[in-house]
Every structure is written in structure tokens, then in C-alpha cells.
Design a protein around this nucleic acid. Structure first.
Lengths: 144, 144
DNA sequence: TATATTACTTGCATAACACAAGCAAAATTA
DNA sequence: TAATTTTGCTTGTGTTATGCAAGTAATATA
């Protein structure tokens, strides 16, 4: 699974990895929708196919964005968690949400107002901080 | 060219439009690399194929992210410029650059340090402001 | 022990993208 | 003003990415 980078531009290089239909969506689901098992992802609103999910989870793991572990008491379910590198993608996702909130409702009027979108509008830095902190707390109670 | 949105999530809806290999790259080229004609894009480091470029420029125009015009003295070259909706994508691109700068050099050691990356590291809000202002100045001297 | 669940894999169809070539209109050059 | 070049595309063909349905092995549950 070697990734070919198109050029030496940092912006384009990020998109060589994240610029597809699923990578950022999966990270969002882990970060903001409490999803962590294979089954969780397959049951999401986005409806990813299982073969694509397998491929994308492997890619995310290969790039160090998520880790794949098992809980000590459960030998069956794999648990996918964000690494620090994955958590560092929060601002990207936040900015996508802001742009969507401001400019995409004409094209998709069904976009919902929930998940603390008022805070996102009022103070995006605080929104980002809260999301990251909540995930760190989840990590602390999950891993140990 | 109707876009099917996967669900009613604002983050996912943004990626229904921007989540591919080229949309954000083209916006970056317009915003930060002074590219504006069809030929400019074909000559870029990323090396987009002309048929893909045609498709993506049409999509960006359909979503109101860019406009297609001609200069008054030139009846041949089309000029592609960012709209306000397109300019509003600057923070997304900035965050992609920050993440890339911090976490992608292990995978692509050729990533360059230029284009004011020191400012990007020191003060991303200021970096964003400068980029947007420079583009607005370009717009002012181009359109009229 | 039988059944269900989870995390996949496999096969096949379609959509996105890549590469090469060609082409018409405008601009430039001779 | 005729010939050439440039620009902005289109077309044809192949490959990669994604979608959908089905199947499977290992584990968990009844």
C-alpha cells in the first residue's frame, strides 16, 4: 500500500492521503460519533460498504491515524481509536463543518443543526477544544 | 451533475463535494499559486489530466466556488476566479497544511518549506488573513 | 450444541481517474 | 492574409476506486 505523492506541496500531500470519499468521514465518526468497532461503522448513516471499510481502516492504521486493538475482556471485537496524529485532524474537520454550515445548505437543505453547532458558530476554537477533550476522556476510560 | 448527499451530516456533506482527489487542490492553486487559466492548471506540479480538469472546473462553477469569465482584452483565455464561497475555504486548506507540516513528513520527506510556512506555524489566523487579503487584492486588479 | 454476531473476504458491476490523441476557435507569426 | 501556434476543450481506452451482494471463519451467546 505505498502512497504516491503527486508533488512536494504540503497541502496536496495531505490530500494524497485524505482526499477521498471516506478517510475524513471515518475519522469524524470516531471523533464525534463515538464509533469504534467495525460494526459501528457499517451501521452509520453514511453507509460504507464493508470491503471499502476494511481497506480504509487499514490505510488509516498504516498512516498512524488510528490504532487497532482489542479490549481485554472481549477477544472478538476490534476497537479502532484515534492516535494523536488522528486527533490533530480535528481542526480540519471543524473547518469543513463551518464551511458546510455557511455555504452548503442551498444544495443539501437536509443538513441538520445538532451536535453543538451553536458552539461551532460562536467559538470554533472552543468547539475544537471541547471535541478533543471529550475524546481524550473517552480514551482514558477505554484504554485502561 | 446532480450531487447525491450521503446523509444529513454537515461534515459528510462537505466531503460529498470536496472529498476527492482534485477539488481542494484546484482551489489551493487558484488561491495560493496565482493560477487562473486552463493552461495554468495543466502546467501545475500536480499534473491533472485535461479531461478531469474540465470536469472539476465545471463542478466548482456549479457549486458557486469559482466563476468562469474572460478578460475584456482577451477573447480566448477563460479566467477562473474564486467566489466568496471559494475564498471561505481558505481555513480548510490552511488546516490541511498544518496537519501535513506536523505529521506527514515521515511519509513524504520531499515536502517543501516555503510559501510562508513559518508564518503558518507561528500564527495560522494571520496566515489565513494574509492569504485571503492577497487574493482579494488580486481580484480587485483583475476584474476591473 | 446450536445459533447469532463480528470482522472480515470474494466476485462482479459501476464510477472516478489517467493517458494519449485529436480538434475547433482565437491569437500570433510570416 | 495564409500558415502556425496556443488555448480550451472532447473522445477513446485503460486502470483504479468504490458499490453491492454474498459468503466465511472465529468468537460469543443461548
Amino acid at each position: 500500500m505505498e502512497t504516491k505523492f503527486r508533488c512536494n506541496c504540503p497541502f496536496t500531500s495531505a490530500l494524497d492521503i485524505l482526499g477521498d470519499k471516506w478517510m475524513l468521514v471515518i475519522v469524524k465518526q470516531i471523533l464525534m460519533e463515538n464509533k469504534q468497532t467495525f460494526k459501528d461503522f457499517t451501521e452509520s448513516d453514511e453507509g460504507i460498504a464493508t470491503n471499502i471499510l476494511t481497506t480504509k481502516l487499514k490505510q488509516l492504521e498504516a498512516f498512524g491515524i488510528i490504532t487497532k486493538t482489542k479490549l481485554p475482556n472481549n477477544n472478538k471485537s476490534n476497537i479502532y481509536l484515534l492516535t494523536e496524529k488522528g486527533l490533530a485532524m480535528t481542526p480540519i474537520i471543524v473547518e469543513l463543518g463551518i464551511w458546510s454550515d455557511n455555504h452548503l445548505r442551498d444544495f443539501n437543505p437536509t443538513i441538520v443543526n445538532k451536535g453543538g453547532i451553536e458552539l461551532l458558530r460562536r467559538d470554533k476554537a472552543e468547539f475544537t477544544r471541547v471535541i478533543e477533550q471529550q475524546y481524550r476522556e473517552k480514551l482514558a476510560t477505554t484504554k485502561n
